[in-house]
Design a protein around this nucleic acid. Structure first.
Lengths: 136, 136
DNA sequence: TAATCTTTGCAATCGAGTTGCGTTCCAAGA
DNA sequence: TCTTGGAACGCAACTCGATTGCAAAGATTA
């Protein structure tokens, strides 16, 4: 739990009961979590409280959200030092079979050459296919 | 209208009244369209008919869908010869200001090196920022 | 023409996300 | 310690894009 405290302190987010359990849960997942995933895991915590907690975390760069095309926004803890700027972006991998969403921190994002006068602010890169567990 | 007929014929999709107007509309747009966009443009065509038409088009690779994070799935006509396979993928650009979604056909997709045993099937690449009209 | 399958339009439903509001909690100041 | 104001919480209701059930209309085949 001291990691949770530490992260919240660094990101300047006040620690509360809900925030603690939500962040603790997120830290213990290998795959990005949807609101429903978290709701199911934390049975006695209210959905809207979790929702507002996720918003707070996102606003304060504790976590980042991923639109993986599953219809549910997924959330994952930002890597240390991440400010969710273009340089901090990474690919996500969505498994079409087990529906898990992974952060691919090790796959570098190419330097994208946009058309003239287009300006990048964020990006949402999702590769879909089969993960190592589901690929035969 | 003969382009519409031609595309549907090539993609093996039976031509109907709704399909004609939907595809014709999509062909005349510079930006990807949401179901609502199409609904608003084709006032006397039913939403569910448009919806089912889009599904049919997508199943038959007439169009592809884009999850741009706006909460609404967008649709755009596939380029000639597109089979919506990884090699046919392209980046999309979502303008945070005017909310338009563009297909960036000219920006090549890098060859992504996935972790061992991961297999790519599709991808949804969305870059967000300001388009040329909105970038000052 | 009759039988059958497909497409369409309408209405209802689903579900993720979001919000309003009253209550509870907490921290700062009196 | 008590008071007070703001933040967080829990509950219920609501929004809105997506989807489906069903019957009518249209197209296709025998």
């Amino acid at each position: 739990m001291q990691i949770v405290d530490e992260i919240l302190k660094i990101k300047n987010v006040k620690n509360t009961a809900v925030r603690t359990v939500v962040l603790h849960h997120l830290l213990n997942q290998e795959k990005a979590q949807s609101l429903k995933d978290i709701e199911n895991a934390l049975v006695n915590t209210d959905r809207s409280s979790i929702f507002r907690t996720l918003k707070t975390f996102e606003d304060n760069k504790v976590i980042h959200s991923i639109e993986d095309g599953s219809g549910m926004t997924k959330y994952a803890v930002c890597a240390e030092g991440c400010n969710c700027e273009p340089k901090d972006l990474h690919y996500h991998f969505y498994c079409n079979n087990c529906n898990k969403t992974f952060c691919l921190f090790d796959v570098p994002l190419q330097n994208i050459k946009l058309p003239k006068n287009f300006k990048i602010q964020q990006a949402n890169m999702v590769i879909k296919g089969l993960c190592n567990n589901c690929n035969e």
